[in-house]
């Protein structure tokens, strides 16, 4: 319990740090990016909306501490301002309409990569020196050293443009009515394959190597020898005895991998024009839409921190040693 509270405190500090960073960036950056934005947005906005944005970026004459307190209050109540590129939609609404696609892409890729990687790792460790153990890791490391987005470009070119197996862009065909019917879901699934596949390809090596190394360490434990001496079947020892315990570091990695996945999803979304928040983040940067940019950054940060906290809770539940300490 104390550990959980300590971690919660740490995550709150991390979130406070990113909110503060968000507060400071537009105020102290050279070149005055915010006035560039206002110059661009002049014609389209009502005076009171401009006033609200000026308040958000500290262009009125309140003292700095007052601005800071107000900003913290706004973030805490979920008021992230109004998007400029999608004027007059509030930032939170823009994010809400697109975060689903990122979650779908990121989680699918993460779950598939973790599953496949862990299983491959278990098998590689069990048959040490076998083909899985000797040939696959170097190959995966080599694939992993390609830039994320470059593999995505290659996959898009090969499977999308040349072979025509998969659609090239977006999350579903234009003109299709979103709904929970077989046609729409099937269409979404075919659009998901290529982006998810590239993320899986790059990240599966890390999972596999991590699992392999802990499995090797676990397989040397006394209780494995004991299980073998009892004459249990190899499959039972491998999965119920060794893998179960070796899985623990993978659970911790899951939280860390999530942050990485968000970054990977960002680049992949850009290559495939997939309408998630990563794609939107880049679009908002190009449109100088600072409120939306900052809102997306805060949302991603909050999601990653929350996921890590959940992973911590699961870890405490799974590993009694953590509870004792």
């Amino acid at each position: 319990m104390r550990l959980v509270l300590r971690n919660l405190g740490f995550y709150l500090i991390a979130f406070w740090a990113s909110v503060t960073l968000n507060f400071l960036l537009p105020r102290f950056m050279p070149g005055d990016p915010v006035s560039r934005m206002f110059a661009q947005a002049q014609g389209t906005m009502q005076p009171d909306q401009i006033a609200q944005l000026q308040k958000l970026f500290g262009l009125d004459d309140r003292p700095l501490w007052r601005q800071y307190v107000d900003y913290l209050h706004d973030v805490a109540t979920g008021d992230l301002g109004i998007s400029i590129s999608r004027f007059p939609t509030p930032v939170s609404e823009v994010i809400g309409s697109q975060i689903g696609w990122t979650l779908l892409l990121g989680l699918t890729a993460l779950v598939v990569a973790a599953l496949v990687g862990n299983i491959l790792g278990v098998l590689a460790a069990w048959r040490r020196g076998g083909i899985l153990d000797s040939a696959l890791p170097p190959l995966l490391i080599f694939v992993g050293s390609f830039p994320y987005f470059w593999l995505a470009m290659g996959a898009l070119y090969l499977f999308g443009v040349t072979l025509g197996w998969f659609p090239l862009r977006h999350a579903y065909d234009v003109g299709l009515e979103p709904g929970f019917d077989a046609v729409f879901l099937g269409n979404v699934a075919t659009h998901l394959v290529l982006p998810a596949l590239t993320i899986v390809l790059v990240s599966v090596g890390g999972w596999m190597l991590g699992m392999r190394n802990t499995m090797i360490a676990t397989a040397a434990e006394d209780y494995i020898t004991m299980a073998e001496a009892k004459g249990l079947s190899p499959a039972r020892i491998m999965f119920r005895y060794a893998a179960r315990n070796a899985l623990l570091p993978s659970v911790t990695n899951f939280g860390m991998a999530l942050g990485f996945m968000v970054g990977g999803a960002l680049l992949t979304e850009v290559v495939f024009a997939y309408p998630g928040i990563g794609y939107q983040l880049l679009a908002s940067v190009q449109a100088l839409d600072y409120p939306l940019m900052q809102g997306i950054f805060l949302t991603i940060t909050a999601a990653v921190l929350l996921a890590n906290f959940v992973v911590d809770l699961i870890h405490v539940r799974l590993d009694p040693r953590v509870r004792v300490r």
Binding site: Y11, A14, A17, S18, N22, L25, P26, M29, P30, G31, P33, G259, F260, V262, G263, G264, L266, L267, G278, L281, L282, V285, Y290, M293, Q294, I296, F297, I300, T301, V304, L305, N308
Partner: peptide, 17 residues
């Protein structure tokens, strides 16, 4: 370590010249 790297990168690069 915990702040998502690439989004942070994008935000910083967007504000700096």
């Amino acid at each position: 370590l915990l702040l998502p790297g690439l989004p942070l990168l994008v935000i910083l690069a967007a504000f700096l010249p």
